[in-house]
């Protein structure tokens, strides 16, 4: 039976066909979806911050782009995926609030999360097939292990599959 597995904030999960991964209400965080098409293995990480190296409180590996991607790949390889076959789709990284000209670092965190995610994926030589990032709205995503499709739902900004 097809199951829908929820990925919380600072969390990551891996499923095999036919299961679905979902994360609800993604804001400035980034959802990193990795897929091995041949084995139909899907992994999804919901990261909050760009880097584990800039912060003391870093025991939760799924919280940071660098450590989460590393762990996600390891977990997928454990299930039989191959790093060389992995492709990525990324979403989120919105700026929910704006404060005129000076936003400060916190306000740009969504953008920084996206940049960091891309840099780390590049290090692992994982291509990004599609992205729906930035903007100022939230996203709920569903990641299908059968097809590698990523469904993005929003409030007032429609619905799309990337």
């Amino acid at each position: 039976m097809q199951k829908v597995i929820k990925v919380g904030m600072a969390d990551l999960q891996v499923v095999e066909e036919p299961h679905i991964l979902t994360t609800l209400g993604l804001g400035s965080c980034v959802g990193i979806a990795l897929y091995d098409k041949q084995k139909k293995i899907a992994g999804l990480a919901h990261i909050m911050l760009p880097s584990s190296t800039q912060i003391k409180n870093n025991s939760n590996l799924a919280k940071f782009a660098d450590t989460a991607i590393d762990l996600l790949i390891k977990e997928m390889v454990k299930r039989g995926a191959s790093t060389a076959r992995l492709k990525a789709k990324i979403t989120g990284g919105a700026q929910m609030f704006s404060f005129g000209n000076n936003g400060g670092d916190l306000m740009k965190i969504g953008y920084r999360n996206v940049i960091a995610t891309k840099e780390i994926l590049e290090l692992y030589k994982i291509d990004i097939l599609a992205e729906d990032t930035g903007g100022n709205h939230g996203r709920t995503i569903e990641f299908y292990s059968e097809t590698g499709d990523l469904l993005v739902k929003t409030i007032g900004f429609g619905l799309k599959t990337i």
């Binding site: 904030m9 600072a10 609800l24 209400g25 993604l26 804001g27 400035s28 965080c29 909050m48 911050l49 912060i55 409180n57 919280k63 919105a94 929910m96 609030f97 704006s98 404060f99 005129g100 916190l106 965190i109 100022n136 709205h137 939230g138 996203r139 709920t140 409030i155």
Partner: peptide, 22 residues
Amino acid sequence: VPSLCIDMAGAILSVPAIQFSQ
């Protein structure tokens, strides 16, 4: 000055969540 956002609770809360997560 205030900044208003009407959207999914999870997305809005991600902003303080990220800040607090540090």
